[in-house]
C-alpha cells in the first residue's frame, strides 16, 4: 500500500509526464488554449490510461512478447473508441473543441509507455495507482498550461473575466506559438524550483 501511494505521488510530481519526462507533448500544445479543454482532454486520457493498463495487467501473461506492442495498441484503441463515443454523446461541445485530439489519445506516448514499462511487469493494485498518478499528473500539467494561456491570451479563467478589459490581451498565447513558449517557460520555472529545493 505504501509502495502504491508512493507510485501515485511520483506520477504527479517527480515523474510528471509533461514537466519531468517531456513525453506526450502534442495534445498538450494543441488543446491547452483554455483550462476547460485542457482538463477535458486530461481526464479523457486518464480514463483510457487507467482502463487499458488494467487490462494489460490482467492479460500480460497471455500476450506473447513478440506481438505485445500491437496488442497494447489494440487495447488502447478500444478504450479510445469507447471514450470518443461517450464524449460525442454527453459532451458534444467539448468534443467539437478537442476535435481529432480525442481519437489521437490512442497514439499518446504516455499510455504506451505506462503499459510497456509498468503495467506489463507489475500487479494490478500498484498499476492502478501508477496510472492514476500519471493520469492526474498529465491532467494537472494540461490545466496549468491552459490556465496560463487563457489568462494571458483571453484574460479569462473558466470563461470568467479576471483581467480588466482595459488591459490588452496577447492573442499570441492562444495561438500555436504560445503553447511552445508557455510549456518551455513552465519547465524552466519548475526546474528552478527543484534546484532551489535541493540546495535548501
Amino acid at each position: 500500500m505504501v509502495k502504491a501511494l508512493a507510485r501515485f505521488k511520483k506520477g504527479i510530481i517527480d515523474e510528471n509526464p509533461i514537466f519531468a519526462q517531456a513525453i506526450a507533448l502534442c495534445p498538450v500544445l494543441a488543446v491547452t488554449t483554455s483550462i476547460i479543454n485542457g482538463v477535458g482532454l486530461g481526464l479523457a486520457t486518464l480514463i483510457v490510461l487507467f482502463c487499458s493498463t488494467l487490462v494489460v495487467c490482467f492479460i500480460r501473461n497471455f500476450i506473447p512478447p513478440q506481438v505485445r506492442i500491437p496488442c497494447f495498441i489494440v487495447i488502447s484503441a478500444t478504450f479510445t473508441t469507447v471514450v470518443s463515443l461517450l464524449m460525442e454523446a454527453f459532451f458534444p461541445a467539448l468534443n467539437d473543441a478537442l476535435g481529432i485530439f480525442i481519437p489521437l489519445i490512442v497514439v499518446n506516448c504516455l499510455i504506451l509507455a505506462r503499459m510497456e514499462s509498468f503495467a506489463a511487469k507489475n500487479p494490478p493494485i500498484v498499476t492502478m495507482f501508477d496510472s492514476l498518478g500519471m493520469g492526474l499528473g498529465f491532467t494537472l500539467a494540461l490545466a496549468l498550461i491552459g490556465v496560463v494561456r487563457e489568462i494571458i491570451g483571453m484574460g479569462t479563467v473558466f470563461g470568467f473575466t479576471v483581467i480588466p478589459e482595459a488591459i490588452p490581451r496577447n492573442v499570441l498565447f492562444i495561438l500555436p506559438p504560445g503553447g511552445f513558449f508557455v510549456l518551455g517557460l513552465l519547465i524552466v520555472v519548475l526546474r528552478a524550483v527543484k534546484d532551489k529545493r535541493l540546495k535548501d
Binding site: 517531456a22 506559438p177 511552445f180 513558449f181 510549456l183 518551455g184 517557460l185 524552466v188 528552478a192 534546484d195
Partner: peptide
C-alpha cells in the same frame, strides 16, 4: 544551463511557429 534540452527547443519551435503564422 536551466534552459538546456526541451525548454530551449520549445523556444526555438515557438519562434519558428511565429514565422509560419
Amino acid at each position: 544551463k536551466i534552459f538546456e534540452g526541451v525548454p530551449i527547443a520549445m523556444m526555438v519551435a515557438g519562434l519558428m511557429s511565429i514565422a509560419f503564422l
